[in-house]
Every structure is written in structure tokens, then in C-alpha cells.
Simulated assay, not measured.
Amino acid sequence: MEHALIEELTTTAIEAAAVAAEVQRAGWATGFRVNAKGDHGDSVTDIDIAAEAAIRQCLKIARPDDSLIGEESDAPSELARICWIVDPIDGTANYLRRSDDFAVSIGVAVDGKHIVGVVQQTATGRIWVGSPEECARDGEPIRVAQRSNLADSIWATGFTTDPHDRERQLRFFSHLMTSVRDARRTGSPALDLAHVADGTVDGYVEFGLGHWDYAAGAALVAAAGGVVDIIDVAPWKGPLVIAAGTQFLVDEMRNVLRRAQVPNV
């Protein structure tokens, strides 16, 4: 892919993330409304909706012919070659509780491949940027950890709000915790994947995700030299995302998932 296009997509993603982050900060300053989302206690705020609208407006000006898939809006009927996959607040439950662990997540797919990822942690100002030409946290180059022993590795994971899916995730979690050194959970898949990219954790595994949950993070991990597998686990709710610094760890985590009887791994 040509350098000029990658540079334009990356610059636009950074600018759109900054605009959404400003909306988030304004929400903390002025207050916001919280509504139930779905049937299982998930929440959405009017800041989620306003931040996504701000991102959409940025892209309408900068890249009017591209498609956009956003968590808070209907998917387009047809997708352009370049598609933006946006989570305006990844970690809404953390945002409404004023925890730092939420982020703007903006991924760009070209011909179906995750190419550019920007994750901005608004509360701290930290930003991860990844593309085929760079991978950095706050402007400093980053790489995935190169751990080769599953028993010594630390993994990030998460849980859905759906009680039935959570039962399955908890059964897998028991297998996970007897196979690895430890596990972490931020409540934000985008931040978890960013932490794989910068080596804070060795891997990330979770199923029941939306495309907006992992698109930016998948691009970050790939740009940082890592491996990302995205697997359809139907009839369970998917997809399943496995991301790690090495192919060996991904393969070892597949073995753990098989022991937990997760489909199709």
C-alpha cells in the first residue's frame, strides 16, 4: 500500500480520536445521561453517541467516500474499500464511573484487512498508533513481548454482560488461570490489545466481541510485530480474538481453548 495513503489514514484517525476525546472530557465536566443498552445491564451514554457523531463528521470532511462502522449506529448496507471501525468510548462502564480505563478506538480496514489503529486513553492522554509504517505509544516506538513460555505469560481478557455467554467465559477462565502466570482485565478490549502491542501483557484472549472492540487493537498488535487470530466460534457468540507477541503463544492459547471446549479453535 502506498505511503501517502497510510500517512493520510493515520493522520485522520489521530485527528478524529482527538475530537472524540474532547467530547469525552466535556462530558465529565458538564455531566451526561446514561441509558440501558440491550437486555443484560449494558449501558450507553449520550457522550458515546455524541463522540461517534463527532468522529463521523471528521471523516465526512476528510474521507467522504469511505465507509464507517460504529458501535452506536447502524452498519452501512455496502462497504467501501476503506472502512473505519469506531468505538467512541471503549469501556463505557469505566467512563461513567470516572475510571481511567476507557479509550477512543479507531481502526481502519483496507480490503478487509486491519491496517491502521489508533487508541487514545482520554483520561491519561496516552495514545497508541499503529500502521505498516509505525507502531508507537506517545510517539515512542513499541514492540510486542517475545515470551515463549505460556506458564510464565500474563494475559488480558474480559467478560460480556450476557449471563449465558459469561458462564462460558468463566468456564474458559478457569482453564486460562491454570495455564498462565496471571490475567488482567481493564474492561476495555482496545486498551488490552494496546497493552499487548507495547509489551505490558503477553497476550489477549476474549470472545463475544464487536468489530469495533478489536479493529484498532488488531492493527496495533500486527504493527508491533505480534500475531492476531480472529475466529468464528459459532454457535457461541463471537468472534474470538487471540493476540500475542509470538505465534507460539497463540498456538498454546488455542490448546487451552480446546480444553475448555470452545468451538472451532
Rank of each mutant, 00 (worst) to 15 (best):
P235W: 07
G208F: 03
V118E: 03
G210K: 13
V108W: 01
L193Q: 07
G130I: 07
R56T: 15
G226S: 10
R97E: 12
R143H: 15
G158K: 06
G187Y: 08
G91H: 03
K60W: 03
S67L: 01
I69Y: 00
V265P: 08
G187M: 11
Q120W: 06
A80K: 02
N149A: 13
G158N: 11
I115L: 14
D101F: 13
M1R: 02
M177P: 04
I106K: 09
G238L: 11
R81E: 14
A136N: 13
N255R: 11
P88M: 09
D65H: 09
G125N: 13
L59I: 09
T10R: 02
P235E: 04
D152P: 05
A234M: 04
V129L: 05
L5V: 13
V144F: 05
A151Y: 00
H211K: 13
T11N: 11
D182Q: 14
P163H: 01
A234H: 08
L9W: 04
V129R: 12
P239W: 08
A145C: 07
F207H: 15
G245V: 05
T10W: 02
I231T: 15
L176V: 14
G117I: 02
V233H: 06
G130D: 09
V205W: 05
P132F: 08
I231Y: 03
S174C: 11
R33E: 15
V250E: 06
A224W: 08
V19Y: 06
A194E: 03
R166S: 03
A218G: 10
V221Y: 02
T200L: 12
A93D: 13
A62N: 12
F248H: 14
V108T: 01
A223Y: 13
A13Q: 07
A260G: 06
R25H: 04
D162S: 10
E7V: 12
R254G: 03
W128M: 10
P76L: 02
